[in-house]
């Protein structure tokens, strides 16, 4: 039986990991390569690196981080943040990432999903979605709207429509982040996640709001998510990956143990 994936997310700025609370007040918590190795040994099923480096000239630092991580860990990992074109994707994949995640670049240029899938295979193109709950209106009938720039800009694009469109264009997976839940540690968005997951046939990773093992239990069962992103709850040592998996296993959710 296919297990549900537990995926720690590491935000990286200028080659160092941080953890943002509602995208503000980032504090520095260490070396991404060390953290990757730590999570690999702790039984994480996959890792996500999100490059929040603002300037383009510092992107080379991220490529070096990706290369060093790829030498240390032997599970899949994806890299997102600032990937805007095929060449950016190629660099990250050649450096050793299994997948690339594209977000606002895909909104600005949806053909990028198609081109990426054709060039590298759909399995390595992850669509990152930042979604905000809004009152339903003509352009956004689902009441969930795509946002960019860390939630500061509404795009007028319906999240449900966009998820289906990205699948049609060849995306292999969706990483679904609720801006409303992100950083709260009060649980994943339990209306949005099943809405999107049931609308597409590609896997959906739930993101934003994890604080307790129960939250993962909910989103991986009623929430219909295929995988769950975690950050603060394990970064700061409140829980271990093992504790979360033990909790899930007791409740009948299939999980992976290393051996």
């Amino acid at each position: 039986m296919l297990t549900k994936r537990i995926i720690p997310c590491l935000d990286v700025r200028d080659g160092k990991t941080t953890k943002g609370i509602r995208f503000k007040n980032n504090i520095d918590i260490g070396d991404p390569v060390e953290m990757a190795r730590f999570y690999y040994e702790a039984g994480a099923d996959e890792l996500v690196f999100y490059d929040i480096t603002a300037s383009a000239e510092k992107r080379a630092i991220m490529i070096e981080v990706v290369q060093r991580v790829a030498e240390e860990i032997f599970i899949p990992f994806s890299v997102g943040g600032g990937i805007a074109c095929l060449e950016d994707m190629r660099q990250v994949l050649l450096a050793g990432a299994e997948k690339v995640s594209i977000n606002s670049a895909a909104i600005n240029n949806p053909a990028l999903i198609q081109e990426g899938a054709q060039a590298f295979g759909g399995q390595c193109i992850v669509l990152g979605m930042d979604v905000k709950k809004v009152p339903p209106h003509a352009a956004v009938p689902s009441g969930y709207e795509m946002v960019i720039h860390g939630g500061r800009i509404l795009t007028g694009i319906d999240a449900l429509w966009w998820a289906r469109e990205a699948e049609r264009l060849g995306a292999g997976e969706i990483c679904l982040n609720s801006i409303d839940a992100d950083g709260t540690q009060k649980g994943y968005e339990m209306n949005l996640t099943p809405l999107i997951s049931e609308a597409v046939s590609i896997p959906v990773i739930a993101s934003g709001g994890a604080g307790l093992p129960e939250h993962l239990g909910q989103v991986l069962t009623e929430g219909k998510a295929d995988a769950a992103l975690i950050a603060s709850m394990t970064h700061y040592g409140t829980y271990t990956v093992r504790q979360i998996k033990d909790y899930l296993k007791e409740r009948g959710v299939p999980v992976r143990y290393i051996w």
Partner: peptide
Amino acid sequence: KHLKIPHMGWNR
């Protein structure tokens, strides 16, 4: 129950 394709992830 609907199963997603590709079969992606960890399996025994």
